[in-house]
Amino acid sequence: MNPTVLITGASTGFGRATATLFAARGWNVVATMRDPGAGAALATLPNVLVVRLDVQDRASIDAAVATGIERFGAIDAVVNNAGFGLFGIFEAASREKIQEQFDVNVFGVMDVTRAVLPHFRARRRGTFVNVSSGAGVFGLPMISLYNASKFALEGFSESLSYELASQGIVVKIVEPGGVLDTGFSARSTDEFGQATIPEGYETFVANAAKIFEGLRANRLATSDDVAGVIYEAVTDGTNRLRYVATEDIKPLVKARRETSEDEYMAFMRRQFGG
Rank of each mutant, 00 (worst) to 15 (best):
T4L: 09
G13Q: 02
T18M: 00
T18G: 05
A19N: 01
A24S: 15
W27P: 01
N28P: 08
T32R: 02
G37S: 11
G39W: 04
A40P: 01
A41N: 05
L49G: 00
V51E: 13
V51R: 11
V55Y: 06
D57A: 08
A59D: 15
A59I: 10
T67K: 11
F72V: 10
I75P: 05
I75L: 13
A77W: 01
N81L: 01
G83K: 06
F90L: 12
F90G: 00
E91F: 13
K97Y: 10
K97R: 14
Q99L: 07
Q101M: 15
V104L: 03
N105F: 06
F107H: 11
F107I: 12
M110P: 00
D111L: 04
V116C: 08
F120G: 07
A122D: 14
R123G: 05
G126H: 05
T127L: 02
T127C: 10
F128G: 01
V131G: 01
G136Y: 02
P141G: 06
P141N: 12
P141Y: 15
M142Y: 11
L145G: 02
Y146T: 04
F151T: 03
A152D: 07
S159E: 10
Y162Q: 11
A165W: 10
A165T: 12
S166H: 06
G168I: 06
V174L: 08
E175F: 04
P176R: 00
R187P: 01
E191R: 11
G193P: 07
N207F: 08
F212Q: 08
F212K: 01
L215Q: 11
L215N: 05
N218S: 15
A221C: 09
A233M: 10
V234K: 06
N239W: 15
R240I: 06
L241Q: 03
R242I: 06
I249Y: 02
A255T: 02
E263C: 04
E263I: 10
E263M: 05
G274A: 09
